[in-house]
Design a protein around this nucleic acid. Structure first.
Length: 573
RNA sequence: GGACCCGUAGCCUAGCCUGGAUAGGGCGACAGCCUCCUAAGCUGUAGAUCGCGGGUUCGAAUCCCGCCGGGUCCGCCA
């Protein structure tokens, strides 16, 4: 099934290809979007100027003059070396509104790819609560999950649990050896906040006392040896913290299909196989009993990638390779969401996977950490804003705002709305920005409820719902969309028609921020339509039905898009 | 020091991958709009050497090189 705008685009491409062939040349046909008012699609003739030995204006003229008539193209104009194509607006309006009404919740979704994708995200050390510095990871990851599913992929979401590092070992040691009475009270009644204190204290003691350091190191070593008893003890410790992390993410509607535990790959021998295979590959060198791969031939400067220590134990990256081989056997595509501090490790894993002939290599989406105006967040230094605190603060602010506006609603209803606004706001303000861009955390930005924000989009959706509550429109109702001729109606329809392409682009390029930008545009255009085109008081009954349908289609598109961002589409606010 | 990322109005940001027609938005500022479908909205004004300098090109915010500023990494840590 093809979407209307796609059909228009294909027709334009075919027309250009045929025209160029007649003019005597072939070439990549690159279609672009012209500035407002100059058409709906355009084609630049400059690159063909040399080939055809004609000025671009002439080529554009010749192509444009070849146009007679067609289904989707209403007009072709030559201007300054460009060929501008105008869509048949009435046809687009009718086709777009028909298809949105018909597909409803699946409008914008793409055809089934019959491909399995494993998306790994968050994978935070389960030693304490998530803080805002890392909050981009789950939000990016979960949004990608939603987009990939909508784009037709079969997605499994995984959280890789590190149960073998010094961090979890410190946590486990702390819980076992520290008297809770000596700790400051937890910042809130939640397991991750409760247990992080043991981790913090243990970490501090580890640096102060050599014996503590030795004990914790011993735990780590036992884990690497696959000591079941010690691993069980560690599991008991981190599981509670992980529960707390899950609770926080649940508030943002973020869930996982599977938690994959690192030690699994030590226990089942796959890490040993990785080591063996790497040694046999011919790329490995030995030094003082430790094994490494020289990364210079792979273009990574003068770096060594150690995968076995001199005592024979493996490293984090080594185990990560085993994990990735396991994933590669189970999926057609792998996506990882990682902080930019993992760039080198990701490169090491990738090189190893290539050496070992992995079927699938992961595509990694890196993001920059969110920092505080004074610098990096640090749990241990107490310079930190927890995700829970951010959500709570957003909730309070949102509650105040709703209460100010809606004296008519019950407190229960107000809280529901506030929650949707707050969590939407948190997700939106993070997802709307390109992952690689630095974000300096400021409360006023994070809790922005106006302009380019989640509530702005939710508000447009609520407005649409409000109109539709007053006058119903049935899915089956035949409407005459050709009556929609107002400039704002046309603008809105064209924008709605572009949704599937946005989904496709966001998915293919792993840029969820495209969806956020798009929804802001739709909401903004809808607000302008709302200003210019009365719906319930449209006068003409057929026009009213058509406008109602357009409102309904906007509602559907906004809702589907918000769904992709994990933001609740409110019916009133 | 080396590698990678970022640098667009007072602040935040889109566009950069795939070069193209006057660089879009938002916040904040200023001036307006609720007898009318929710003003979390709308309109208008002011505000940009697209970090700097070269190069490639008919054409550069976009590609290449150098520099400056900020971040990340450079461990037999995770």
């Amino acid at each position: 099934m093809k979407y209307p705008f796609e059909l228009f685009k294909e027709e334009v491409k075919n027309f250009i290809r045929a025209s160029l062939r007649e003019l005597g040349c072939e070439g990549e046909v690159k279609i672009e979007t012209p500035p407002a008012g100059k058409g709906d699609l355009s084609f630049a003739c400059f690159p063909f100027s040399k080939l055809l030995k004609k000025p671009p204006e002439k080529i554009a003229d010749e192509i444009a003059s070849r146009f007679k008539e067609s289904k989707w193209i209403s007009k072709v104009v030559s201007e300054n070396g460009y060929v501008n194509f105008f869509v048949n607006e009435k046809r687009l309006a009718q086709a777009t509104i028909d298809i949105i009404k018909k597909l409803d919740e699946s409008y914008g979704s793409l055809e089934k790819k019959h491909k399995k994708v494993i998306i790994e995200h968050t994978s935070a050390n389960p030693t304490g609560p998530l803080h805002v510095g890392r909050a981009r990871n789950p939000i990016l990851g979960d949004t990608l999950v939603r987009i990939y599913r909508f784009a037709g992929y079969d997605v499994e979401v995984q959280f890789y649990v590190d149960d073998m590092g010094k961090q979890v070992a410190a946590l486990a040691w702390g819980i076992k050896n520290i008297d809770p009475a000596t700790l400051t009270p937890p910042s809130r009644d939640k397991p991750d906040h409760y247990f992080v204190r043991f981790y913090q204290k243990a970490y501090q003691l580890m640096q102060e006392k050599e014996e503590v350091n030795r004990e914790i190191s011993k735990i780590v070593k036992e884990c690497e040896g696959g000591n079941e008893e010690i691993l069980k003890m560690i599991e008991k410790a981190y599981m509670k913290v992980l529960d707390g992390i899950k609770q926080s993410l649940e508030r943002l509607d973020i869930r996982f299909d599977r938690f994959v535990v690192e030690s699994t790959f030590v226990k089942n021998g796959s890490v040993a196989k990785v080591v063996e295979a790497l040694i046999k590959s011919g790329y490995a060198r030995k030094e003082n009993g430790a094994w490494y791969i020289d990364m210079k031939p792979f273009g990574i400067g003068d770096k060594r990638f150690y995968f076995v220590r001199s005592d024979g134990t493996t490293l984090y990256a080594t185990r990560d390779i085993a994990y990735h081989l396991w994933k590669a056997e189970r999926a057609d595509m792998l996506i990882n969401v990682l902080g930019e501090d993992h760039k080198l490790e990701a490169k090491q894993v990738e090189i190893a996977l290539k050496i070992l002939g992995a079927k699938v290599l992961p595509k990694v989406v890196f993001y920059s950490f969110i920092t505080l105006p004074g610098g990096k967040m640090s749990t241990r230094k107490g310079r930190v804003v927890y995700l829970d605190d951010l959500i709570d603060e957003a909730m309070e602010r949102a509650y105040e705002e709703v209460r100010k506006r809606r004296v008519d609603l019950s407190d229960e209803r107000l809280k529901k709305i506030a929650e949707a606004v707050a969590t939407g706001c948190v997700r939106y303000n993070i997802i709307r920005i390109q992952p690689e861009k630095d974000i300096v955390f400021k409360w006023e930005d994070a809790l922005n409820f106006e302009g380019n924000s989640a509530p702005f989009i939710q508000y447009a959706h609520a407005r649409a719902c409000s109109i539709l509550r007053k006058e119903k429109i049935e899915r089956e109702e035949e409407i005459d969309a050709t009556l929609l001729e107002h400039e704002q109606e046309i603008k809105l329809i064209k924008l709605l028609a572009g949704f599937p392409e946005v989904v496709n682009d966001a998915c293919e390029s792993n840029r969820p921020n495209l969806v956020a930008n798009y929804l802001f545009d739709v909401a903004s255009q809808f607000n302008q339509f709302y200003r210019d085109c009365p719906v319930l008081r449209a006068g003409d009954e057929n026009l009213k039905r058509a406008r109602l349908a357009l409102v309904d289609c906007t509602r559907i598109t906004l809702r589907n898009g918000l769904q992709l961002l994990g933001i609740k589409a409110l019916e009133e606010m």
